[in-house]
Structures are given as C-alpha cells and as structure tokens.
C-alpha cells in the first residue's frame, strides 16, 4: 500500500479544470519532486491534495482512505502543507506563529500541554529559530519567514509534508539548508515529502522520484535519472538543454544553452 494514491483527479476553479485526469502514487518515505513549467497546474494539484479545492472528478486515497471522508482536523495531523511564500503575515511572535501548528492536536478549549510546548521548542531549535522566538513574524526577512513557516508545518507532526516551492525566495545557503533538513527528516524520521521545485538541478540532487507536469497533465514520472533527460525536459519546457552527470554525486545535472538572440532570457533563469 502506498501512502498517497491520486486517482484520475480533475480539479480547477469555477468549473474550469486546470488539471485533468492526474494519476500517480506517493510511496512511503522519501522525497518526491513535482516539476513543470509555469501554469502546469502544480499548485492546483497541491491545493486539491491539501483539500482547499474539491476535485471535480476522481479521488485521493490516504493510506487507502478517501481524504474527502477524513475529518479536517484529523487530516491536518497527518498532512502538513507549506504554501508558497506569503505576503506580510499578522504580527504574531515567531513562537505564537509556530504554535498554531499544534491546533489540530488540541481541542478548541484545551490549552497546550507540556508535550506541545516541547515539540514547539524542539522545532524552533531544529530550524535555528530559538533566538528569534519573541520577534514579530512580520518583521522577518524572507528566508527567516520561510523557516518559521516550515517550523509551523513540522510541529503538526505530519506523516506527509507538501511543500510548494519552499526555496523560491531563498539564497543558496538557505536553499541547501532547508532541503538538507527535509532530506534528513525523511531519512531519519520517516517523513514523506512531496515538493514542488522550479530548480531542476535541486530536484535532481534531492528527490528520490520526480514527476513532470505539463498543461494540467502528468507528462512523465520516475527516478531522476530516467525523467531528467534531455528529451523529456526539452519536450516539457520547450527549452534546449544538455544533461550531464554531476562529477561528485553522479546525479543528473542540467545545463542551459544561452542562445544568441535569447541570451539574456536564459541567463535570467
């Protein structure tokens, strides 16, 4: 049995489907990357799995159970979603903001227990936020805020973590730090991670499986070696690339080919 089975999902906004007939499975443990050009429907897929959008057709099974039938609070104890970088949040302190992630574990009127406090402190520590705990989240830098949002997701103690471009606004130091952390959580704590990435090389370096979306459909999926090939990437992105091997890790590495007329565009990527 797989952790998550997405079966023939069609979903979108106001009866206009953005993704059509999506089917794939997420096995236990490991990191599965979702890549694809802008507008391919990656975020719509996440909003459907995260139960913000109701699918128009098809169903999603979590450990064999249709997620539509799982009470929302119970679902939030199993699946955490780290949304894309958000605009200025309300002036919570870092600790208050992170502790919101414990709400699914406590009834409306039951105060936080020592266990909750411990989990919150542990994750603040894990993400290097201990010295920040009294700072206001609306006064943090983008990278700090991203870590705070990740901490909030981790205190949910999920089995499945969905991350929508967690590295989009981070510098390389923080990119690598966040992905290293996620990688070690998936290896040591048995966390399963489904992650949307734009950077194909990061996807190649960190993901155990990769799924390419294009035009609202699954284009291809498999191990990074089998999916991140010159042929599939050029087909999905309509951009010429060359694929080599990273000399240290032997993972696929994608080289972009700046062309005479479009050199600036390609460099911007």
């Amino acid at each position: 049995m797989d952790l998550l089975r997405v079966q023939h999902i069609t979903s979108g906004y106001e009866r206009r489907p953005v993704i059509r007939d999506i089917t794939f499975t997420v096995p236990f443990r490991g990191i599965m990357g979702i890549i694809g050009p802008n507008g391919a429907g990656k975020t719509t897929l996440f909003r459907t799995i995260g139960r913000v959008l109701k699918p128009m057709d098809g169903k999603i099974l979590y450990r064999g159970r249709d997620i539509a039938g799982i009470p929302r609070r119970e679902f939030a104890r199993k699946v955490a979603v780290i949304p894309q970088f958000r605009s200025a949040p309300p002036p919570f302190t870092v600790e208050e903001f992170v502790s919101l992630g414990r709400y699914p574990h406590r009834g409306r009127l039951s105060p936080f227990t020592r266990e909750d406090r411990g989990i919150i402190a542990e994750n603040l520590d894990l993400l290097g936020l201990k010295d920040f705990s009294d700072r206001k989240v609306n006064a943090l830098s983008g990278g700090e805020l991203q870590r705070v949002v990740l901490a909030q997701g981790l205190v949910q103690k999920p089995e499945l973590l969905l991350m929508d471009e967690p590295t989009a606004h981070l510098d390389i130091t923080h990119k690598i730090r966040v992905l290293d952390l996620v990688g070690s959580l998936s290896k040591q704590a048995g966390l399963t991670v489904l992650i949307i990435l734009h950077d194909l090389n990061l996807a190649g370096a960190y993901c155990d499986r990769v799924l390419i979306m294009k035009g609202g459909e699954v284009h291809s999926s498999g191990t990074p070696d089998s999916v991140l090939t010159q042929e599939t990437i050029e087909e999905a992105y309509h951009t010429p690339v060359r694929v080599g091997k990273d000399p240290l890790t032997a993972k696929p590495h994608i080289y972009f080919l700046p062309q005479a007329g479009t050199a600036m565009d390609a460099a911007g990527e």
């Binding site: 913000v52 929302r72 119970e74």
Partner: peptide, 23 residues
C-alpha cells in the same frame, strides 16, 4: 473569545486555515 483559534487561523488566510484543520 471561544473562537480565538478560528480567528488566529483565519487571519493567516483561507488556504492556511484549511491546512491547519479548520473548515
């Protein structure tokens, strides 16, 4: 005051409220 949790989540946004278990 008994809806403080709901308000704490709603002020983060609708998607975030769903993700943290609130309809």
């Amino acid at each position: 005051p008994f809806f403080s949790r709901d308000l704490n989540l709603l002020c983060l946004g609708e998607d975030e409220s769903y993700h943290l278990g609130l309809d």
